[in-house]
Amino acid sequence: MSDTKNTAAVATARGSMRARIEQLLAFGGLIVIVAFFSIANENFRTFSNFTAILFSTVVIGLLALGTTFVIITGGIDLSIGTGMTLCAVMSGVLIINWDLPLGLGLVLTVLFGGLIGFVNGFNVAVLKLPPFIATLAMMLVAQGLALVLSNSVPIYFNALPEFSRISTGELIPKVPNAVLVLAAAAVVAAVLLNRTLFGRYTFAIGSNEEATELSGVNVRRWKLLIYTVAGLFTGLAGIMISARLGSAQPATGMGYELQAIAAVVIGGTSLVGGKGSIIGTVIGALIISVINNGLRIMSIPQEWQNVILGAVILAAVYADMARKRSGSST
């Protein structure tokens, strides 16, 4: 009897150790990279540069947070990059062109992001289209609509300095508001994923969709909701990017989705589904920002930044798989 108790205790201890080590891998990677750049370049290791890194993480980070849920279900969302741009344009249309009150405009923009996600969810959960195809189509639709709605010209928020303050204002001295927004969004996402039905079903669907369905879970409805929530994060990212730039730029956005997916994957979330974490995604997004920032400070050309980022993705996923292999041979 006491024997089983003991093994149980050992197994639990090992389980939490495993979880901790799992976090450490991405976190350890981040520490190593920060240490490397700090030693290599003194301009890197300044407070203002660290806040700059955080500031530049915001948009990719928000997109990555939302898409973490989708990826844990075993799906993918390629529409978040241009979807974000469409939301940015939407905010311009609502707030500048239609002259709606700022607060209302912001809420509607986020809801519009939710609508994009809802359409993705409908295509995936109800029409049963493969997520890759459904969101690839949405990526193109959003890109086109952003250009149509804006007549292919940027919408400027110059008349509305409060708008820019959402991103660049400093409620806490020396910390841009955008960083607070990202932090708050990460907390909300973590609570959603770890403490709610929504999160449990996200993992369950990613682990085994058929079994989840047969367990009496309305998988269709929850998937619809998961894609919609991912869309809300896209809407928020749209606001943050136009607030940072002071304008809605309709021709950008393509490529952000891949950076966001990279952040999620570096953070240890499995593209097969059923496994992932918000803290991992945040660390993944930070790793990308640190690498981009550090290489820029060391005057390494932009082209090489992507080469190195690609190598980091390979290393991160390989390390993840290697650890899993050594773990499962028992």
């Binding site: 993992f203 085994n208 059923g274 496994k275």
Partner: peptide, 13 residues
Amino acid sequence: KHFGLLLNQTVSS
């Protein structure tokens, strides 16, 4: 395995 369990999740889940 295909229709009953979430194999990579815990017993309590």
